[in-house]
Amino acid sequence: MRLSPFAPIDALRAPPPEPARVAWLAGREYAHRGLHDDVVPENSPAAFAGAIARGMGIECDVQKTADGRAMVFHDWELDRLTDQTGATGAHTVAELEQLTLLGSAERVPSLDRVLDQVAGQVPLIIEIKSKRDRKVSPLCLAVLRALEGYRGDHAVMSFDPRVGRWFSVHAPETVRGLVVTEEGNRGLRGTVERHLALWHAAPDFIAYDIRDLPSRFAAAQRERGLPVLTWTVSTGELRERAAVHADAPIAEGEGVA
């Protein structure tokens, strides 16, 4: 591979992790929001139980509650996944834990409850949801507090490079990742923005949009020692692509082996 003009700065601002630190990430399949389907809701205790039973790693999403806790839920609004409406973050953890996920008896779990359920049986990757107009520190701190004393393999990741930077400063022992998509931003400007995000986050790994693989940016980071995970692997064809261009798939549906 031809050396990128960004390579020297990549090495300086986002050095690769010690291989032993991230060895557990590779060669593993991760269940995207747990092992869910038309019956088992995403990010539910049942979805996580299904992944654990199959020995799959788990990827889940977290948001901050009104009382500063970390809740496992993907959407900014409650409408798609529950019979309630309105902003997810406007509710307390106690209120959210009373909500059932549509089409099931599964309740929305806090990160504390998910950690108790997983209990180190399989690796766990926590995607921290953020918005550019919000500070990331309250949710990062809530996640860190929930993880205190947790012994299983785990990592945090986010599209927002501020999350990686926060953990690099306040919890450098926590493995951290940068989530990347090139959708709608594939030109020179996009390339520069991806490198700027990389330098700010200083991640231990990247989680790449499978639609963008193969990617020169992803390949360059992988070559210099950052594991590449890829999402969302939802078909057999995408699974084959992931096997060539990434170290581990984050999969759902027909993409699960």
Rank of each mutant, 00 (worst) to 15 (best):
M1E: 15
R2P: 12
A7W: 07
P8Q: 11
I9T: 11
A11M: 03
L12M: 13
L12R: 08
R13N: 06
P16Q: 10
P17S: 02
A20K: 02
A20L: 05
R21F: 11
R21Y: 12
V22F: 04
L25F: 03
L25K: 01
E29H: 08
Y30R: 14
Y30H: 10
H32G: 05
L35N: 00
V39K: 13
P41T: 13
P41H: 07
A47T: 07
A49H: 09
A51M: 04
A51E: 09
I52S: 10
A53L: 05
R54C: 10
G55P: 13
G55K: 15
G55Q: 15
C60G: 07
D61F: 00
A66W: 15
G68M: 15
E77Q: 07
R80A: 08
Q84G: 11
G86Q: 12
G89V: 04
A90H: 08
H91Y: 15
H91W: 14
V93P: 03
A94H: 03
L96V: 06
L99W: 09
L101H: 06
S104T: 13
A105Q: 11
R107V: 14
V108I: 09
V108M: 09
V108P: 00
V122G: 09
E127K: 08
K129E: 06
K129Q: 10
K131F: 04
D133W: 01
R134Q: 10
R134E: 11
L139E: 08
L147R: 11
R151Y: 12
G152H: 09
D153P: 02
A155K: 04
S158M: 07
V163H: 06
V163L: 01
R165I: 04
W166R: 13
V169H: 12
V175H: 03
V175Y: 13
L178S: 01
V180R: 02
T181S: 12
E182V: 05
R186H: 04
G190H: 04
T191N: 02
V192W: 12
E193P: 00
L196A: 02
A197I: 07
H200E: 11
A201H: 08
A207S: 06
A207Y: 02
Y208S: 07
I210M: 02
D212F: 00
L213G: 04
R216I: 08
A219N: 08
P227Y: 06
V228E: 06
L229V: 02
L229G: 06
R241Q: 14
A243W: 05
H245R: 10
A246V: 03
E252Q: 03
E254D: 01
A257N: 13
